[in-house]
């Protein structure tokens, strides 16, 4: 993986030293080529981010609304208010659980998928990816209809004599729906790293008398760890900032950070406060993900390159 990019620059010094104009062009080529994407990124991601950060320092008054100026008041109130802390903790707990469940379901799913014969493999890959084609909102509504008090599950429970069970507006429901939405983001990177695996390596483990389970745990799993790692980062990041699922399935009571931001902006009209919460979410997310990345990957860097 690392050998290929390094090979390209090493080829450039081979050009004669007197015609350095083409050499300079070659050297600036990466910059020029990545410029459009960089500009787009700056315009669409960095600018709003920067404006949001600025906004979070503005003063706010419930009577007069936003009033310019500079204050750290919003950060102070978020960080000291147990209401917000609880929401942050809930968000990360729910995201971590959803990620863990995605690993537990998604990794074996990807493994089984990679072992399937050809017609079935394509069919099931499509089944796994199909949910991505349906809007998250539609899927959230699907879950709320399914789990609602008049939904088929409750109808079945009533018919069985168990009685109605309240399933909506709980953490469990949000987690289940998040897992449903995020699973493809776990399966795809794991599947990709499984594709890169030499099947002979697993066979080698079997040839030494390892059981199938041992071969998977000792030989396959460590090699697809980078895939699991990136899958977890994607799932965690998307879950922690998810809006539609907790918004529709968590109800008014079970708030997550993204729904709080929404409330601040649109119900309380306290934009600076919403911005401060958003910035804090981003920061916390970054810290958690970078730490996770460091711990897991640092552990395996030398081995897998």
């Amino acid at each position: 993986m690392t050998a290929q990019p390094s090979a390209a620059p090493s080829a450039t010094p081979a050009t004669a030293p007197d015609d350095d104009a083409p050499a300079a062009r070659v050297r600036s080529a990466p910059l020029i080529l990545s410029a459009p994407a960089a500009l787009l990124f700056a315009a669409l991601v960095l600018t709003p981010l920067f404006l949001t950060a600025l906004l979070s320092f503005n003063e706010f008054d419930h009577m007069t609304g936003r009033t310019g100026g500079f204050t750290l008041e919003h950060y102070r109130s978020v960080l000291t208010d147990s209401y917000y802390l609880e929401i942050f903790l809930r968000t990360f707990r729910v995201s971590a659980l959803a990620t863990a469940i995605c690993v537990v379901i998604g990794v074996p799913e990807a493994y089984i998928l990679s072992r399937m014969g050809n017609p079935w493999r394509s069919v099931f890959l499509l089944v796994v990816l199909a949910p991505l084609l349906v809007s998250v909102v539609v899927r959230a509504f699907g879950w709320s209809m399914l789990l609602g008090p008049e939904g088929p599950i409750n109808a079945a429970l009533v018919a069985l004599g168990v009685g109605r069970v309240r399933m909506l507006y709980g953490e469990g429901t949000v987690i289940v729906a998040l897992v449903h939405v995020m699973l493809p983001f776990m399966v795809i990177p794991v599947w990709t790293s499984l594709q890169k695996l030499d099947p002979a390596v697993e066979q080698a483990a079997l040839s030494f008398g390892a059981s199938r389970a041992t071969a998977i745990v000792r030989v396959v799993a460590p090699q697809i760890l980078p895939g699991i790692l990136s899958g977890s980062l994607i799932v965690f990041g998307l879950s922690a900032s998810a809006f539609a699922i907790p918004g529709l399935l968590g109800g008014r009571r079970l708030k997550m950070v993204a729904t709080v931001v929404y409330d601040q902006y649109l119900s309380d009209l306290n934009w600076p406060m919403g911005a401060a919460v958003a910035v804090l979410l981003l920061t916390a997310n970054l810290i958690i993900m970078l730490t996770y990345h460091r711990v897991v990957e640092g552990h395996y860097r030398r081995r897998l390159g």
Binding site: V201, A204, L206, G209, V219, Q223, R303, L304
Partner: peptide, 21 residues
Amino acid sequence: AKANSRGLGIVFQSYALFPHM
């Protein structure tokens, strides 16, 4: 018979070393 019950020593053409060990 299953490969892991045959007890043979094998050198693979592609070596098939365990890259993480």
